[in-house]
């Protein structure tokens, strides 16, 4: 596997600004499952918009608070988003499904609702540490956890769900684990432990590669590469950030952006594996086209 990776190279073919109207900044772009649309949000994840790539139309899905935090899409094009509400300061999160007429509540308000992983149009997530499965198409809860393999950030560890078994993984010891993601090949994990760095491991937690202090990693659709941001800050504000791609073994890396005057953040990989999308500090949405060559 490593030898085939080493024989490949990644070429940046094109970078284009998809949205750059400074009066309407957007952040945290992510592709829908079919790659035909891009989900967008604004400050502090308030509201959710969808950009149709072919028509270039932007449609507001909702003004809801928190809607832009980790929205998910289904294979039929529907979008599921969070809606945060506060009761006497307590935060409650509901899940809604985007509908043409009225958006549909599909999960009642609850506390400590983690971001969801998508497997076969199911949302798998934690509610106050307990796993939950929501069929995105039907809007019904399910309980057949044994059918899915996924990994979630728990309070001080990672939790791997596989064949109905739950195993705790904490390769760097207990701490604040974030950005965990199972590879599309179901045999590797990427995760970060805050303050310690970002790592690739197998499903038993054995380290495959240490990626260093890089952030917001995501797997390529073929599970061979990761895209991430290498951001620097002064404690109150970002001072620099560029987007990188790295082979999962950490042996090869490519700088996808090289713009000292611009701070690019939070990349996402397109389903076709040939595009990476991210936002700038000032709210521009930018897409880079890449080619993997032998």
């Amino acid at each position: 596997m490593a030898s085939s990776l080493l024989a490949k190279d990644i070429i940046v073919k094109n970078t284009q600004m998809i949205l750059g109207d400074n009066k309407t900044p957007f952040y945290f772009p992510s592709y829908t499952v079919d790659g035909k649309s891009i989900l967008l949000t604004q400050n502090a994840y308030t509201g959710l918009w969808i950009l149709d790539r072919s028509s270039e139309d932007i449609r507001k899905i909702t003004n809801a608070q928190g809607a832009g935090f980790e929205p998910r899409s289904l294979t039929d094009g529907a979008v599921i988003y969070r809606h945060d509400e506060y009761q006497k300061g307590r935060k409650f999160t509901s899940l809604y499904k985007d509908r043409a007429t009225e958006n549909q509540l599909i999960a009642d308000a609850a506390r400590f609702v983690s971001p969801a992983n998508m497997v076969n149009d199911r949302l798998i997530y934690l509610i106050d540490e307990a796993p939950a499965i929501l069929n995105g198409s039907s809007g019904r809860s399910e309980h057949n956890l044994e059918d899915y393999t996924t990994v979630l950030n728990d309070k001080l560890t990672l939790k791997l769900f596989q064949s109905g078994e739950v195993s705790v993984i904490a390769p760097q010891g207990e701490g604040n684990y974030i950005w965990s993601e199972l590879s599309p090949t179901f045999d590797k994990l990427v995760y970060a432990k805050t303050g310690a760095g970002t790592f690739v491991s197998d499903l038993q937690g054995n380290i495959i590669s240490e990626l260093g202090f890089v952030h917001a990693p995501h797997w390529s659709p073929d599970g061979e590469y990761l895209v991430y941001m290498k951001d620097l800050d002064d404690g109150v504000q970002y001072t620099a950030s560029e987007i990188w791609i790295v082979s999962y073994d950490g042996l090869q890396s490519w700088k996808i952006t090289d713009t000292p005057e611009k701070i690019e953040l939070y990349p996402q990989w397109a389903p076709d594996g040939e595009h990476v999308i991210y936002h700038s500090l000032h709210g521009e949405i930018i897409e880079t086209t890449i080619e993997i060559v032998e």
Binding site: Y86, A192, T194, G195, A216, D233
Partner: peptide
Amino acid sequence: DQDDVGLSERSTDANNRGASW
């Protein structure tokens, strides 16, 4: 005071946990 925690890690950690404040 051994950890070196970046800004993006801080906000992501809080967001993931569903913190109220």
